[in-house]
Design a protein around this nucleic acid. Structure first.
Length: 628
RNA sequence: GGGCCCAUAGCUCAGCUUGGAUAGAGCGACAGCCUUCUAUAAUGAAAUGGAGAAAGCUGAAGGUCGCGGGUUCAAAUCCCGCUGGGCCCGCCA
């Protein structure tokens, strides 16, 4: 069931194509399609194609527009067509268009999907991927929220989404935290069992780093730890696995869950090696001549890629030397190498033999969270058509290498590698650093607690709510405030964190949208009406109602756009637009005072609006609220 | 040396991919917005507070779209060159 707006747009496109042909214009279908949009000026839908036709035929644009407007057939949902300033303007038949748009929504036009664009192709979306040595801070939260919203958006466009978290359980920072954990006395820390594990571990990690600064010889011990922990049977290996990694993940998932974020799989870096994904990847890269063993010179003994071989466009051109090492001369792979292998697994380029077992058998969303490891069974999480990695823009270069390498290897076989590069979150006057501990006081948990208590204060003013309701609503409102603040900003924009803007409940905010939802709900409740699908005919549609309906009709297109561009902030903008539009309608039309058919019609509009608002909120992971 | 990103109202941001009619929001500051009940009291009015569908709405104010060229019937949007800010270019992750 296609939305009336989409059908109409297609119809107009066909009609304009015919007109252009009659006028001997060579413009492409795409050009005509791009010329059609919701009108900013006169009319409801307009086309600027007359300018192009005029150019080609040497006529005046106003004349061409007038000619087309008078000649073109009038589509069913259109009342009249006019021309002004060279634009062709379609004036909708408001009553019919409105009713069809509302019915489309009421009949469940968007219940399953906002769009069928994805056609069940598979996409692996990687997000969060925090080093397991400290709690999430507000910067990690931005990543988590973008990744979660993006996953929702892709799912709504009918993609099969695997929500994936990459866990770096090797690496030096893990060794540092582990060393600290095993040498608490040296650091002068006593463990507070009450403290959330990730916060405690973060403190250990920061103290360890300070300790290293004061005594660089400690680094040798840590390197030893790093080597030892690779052996699963060693004390280091066991502590790493059983205490640190699992303790960390449990705490991290608590944070995730408190924000309503649930993923499908956690893949451990150590398993990229364990299951020999890395070996297979290097083999294939060498076989295709992309990577090679350097015999002499600076890179003697390394396996590396000459970037000239994989294209020098974009970020790749920014390298001082053209060589990117994958395997060090001591035979160990670096981060980029593992990421390339991992992407090859995600895309099904190398065989899928990784084992998975449940980590949380039933998350609050009802689904299981799996983790890779030495035990479990082979599960087909890889083999995707598209991979998206939500990683901050500092890693642009590295991600370009990954993308370039795999594209060189795999050609253009309908596989797509996307990097959603977002800018980092900073504090006023300083940067967030896991190592230095500047995140203390700015963790995701801190933010949520503060948001909840501020929301509760505000909600307590409403004396019609029971205590338990207040608690529940404050939680939802607090989360909405935070999510909206982070998600309404374009990913490529840097955020300087401030408590007052992160926790705003006024204006362009999550709570404002929730509040609008609550208002719509209260009207529906007070009306006593249960059936909204009997839509009577109505002769006149107030301006405010019609503006709202036009916005509602764009829902599918908006979600597609957000999906194509990987930008959840487009949904945020849309939420504000429809909420504001609804508020204006609500101020101007006293719905419950209306009678008969009019009342029923307006209530159906409110009901349809509430559905659209609910879908949109859900895309950003914001809970709709019936009263607040 | 090179590459990527950002620059739009006092502040925070949309709009740029696909050029189009008068460049849009929010915050802040300014001026306003219905009904009813109730408290303060000699009475009434005003004022303040509470409640209602009310965390809302309306109005006016605020702009060299960083600068300079170019392309075009038309440039915030495309191209070239600057300026300022951020990030990156390791046998780290």
């Amino acid at each position: 069931m296609e939305a009336p707006y989409i059908i109409l747009k297609k119809e107009i496109l066909e009609l304009l194509k015919r007109e252009a042909k009659l006028l001997n214009c060579q413009c492409t279908e795409e050009e005509i399609e791009n010329s059609i949009s919701q009108s900013k000026g006169i009319g409801d839908i307009s086309s600027s194609i007359a300018f192009r036709i005029a150019k080609q035929t040497g006529k005046r644009s106003a004349d061409v527009a007038a000619e087309i407007a008078s000649h073109i057939k009038t589509p069913k949902l259109v009342k009249s067509i006019s021309s002004e300033n060279g634009f062709i303007n379609f004036h909708l038949n408001r009553a019919i268009f409105s009713s069809e748009a509302i019915m489309h929504i009421l009949k469940g036009g968007y219940n399953e999907n906002a769009s069928t664009m994805g056609d069940r192709s598979k996409v692996v979306i990687e997000y969060i991927s925090v080093n397991p040595v400290h709690p999430w801070h507000v910067g990690h939260l931005r990543n988590a929220l973008i990744g979660d919203a993006l996953s929702n958006i892709y799912q709504s466009c009918k993609y099969l989404v695997v929500r994936e978290n990459y866990l770096d359980d090797l690496g030096l920072q893990a060794a540092e935290a582990l060393w600290g954990l095993m040498n608490l006395q040296k650091l002068g820390i006593s463990i507070d069992q009450q403290k959330k594990f990730d916060h405690m571990l973060g403190e250990v990690y920061v103290k360890t780093n300070k300790f290293i600064e004061s005594d660089p010889k400690i680094m040798e011990e840590i390197r030893k730890t790093n080597k030892l922990m690779e052996n699963e049977e060693s004390a280091e290996g066991k502590t790493l696995e059983e205490n640190m990694i699992f303790g960390y993940l449990k705490a991290e998932r608590e944070t995730a869950s408190s924000f309503g974020i649930y993923q499908d799989i956690i893949v451990r870096e150590s398993d990229i090696l364990r299951f020999r994904l890395f070996d297979k990847a290097i083999e294939e890269l060498k076989a295709k001549g992309i990577a090679k063993l350097y015999g002499e010179g600076k890179y003697a003994g390394c396996i590396a890629i000459d970037l000239k071989d994989i294209g020098t466009d974009g970020a790749l051109a920014g390298l001082m030397e053209n060589v990117k090492v994958l395997v060090r001369s001591d035979g160990t792979p670096n981060y980029a190498a593992k990421d390339i292998a991992y992407h090859m697994w995600k895309l099904g380029i190398i065989e899928d033999n990784m084992l998975f077992s449940p980590f949380i058998s039933k998350q609050k969303n009802g689904k299981t969270l799996f983790i890779s490891g030495k035990e479990g069974k082979i599960m087909k999480f890889g083999g995707a058509d598209i991979t998206i990695s939500v990683i901050d823009s500092q890693q642009n270069f590295e991600q370009q290498v990954v993308k370039g390498t795999i594209e060189a290897l795999h050609g253009e076989k309908r596989k797509e590698i996307k990097h959603l590069a977002y800018e980092v979150v900073e504090l006023e006057g300083s940067k967030l650093s896991g190592r230095k501990g500047t995140w203390v006081g700015y963790t995701a948990d801190d933010l949520l607690n503060e948001a909840k208590s501020r929301a509760l204060k505000l909600i307590s003013q409403n004396e019609n709510l029971r205590e338990d309701e207040k608690e529940r609503i404050a939680n939802a409102v607090g989360i909405a405030a935070i999510k909206f603040t982070f998600l309404k900003i374009s990913p490529e924009k840097k955020i300087v964190f401030s408590w007052s803007t992160a926790l705003t409940f006024d204006g362009d905010s999550g709570p404002y949208c929730q509040y609008t939802y609550a208002r719509a709900s209260r009207i529906i409740e007070k009306s006593g009406v249960k059936n909204f699908e009997d839509l009577p005919a109505i002769s006149e549609i107030p301006e405010e109602a019609f503006s709202l309906i036009k916005l509602m009709a764009l829902y599918g297109e908006i979600v597609e756009k957000a999906c194509r561009e990987c930008r959840p902030n487009i949904i945020g903008e849309y939420l504000i637009d429809i909420s504001t539009s609804f508020s204006k309608f609500y101020e101007n039309v006293q719905i419950l005072k209306k009678e008969g058919n009019e009342r029923q019609w307006f209530l159906s509009l409110v009901f349809a609006f509430r559905k659209i608002l609910g879908y949109s909120l859900a895309l950003l992971g914001i809970e709709p609220i019936d009263k607040m």
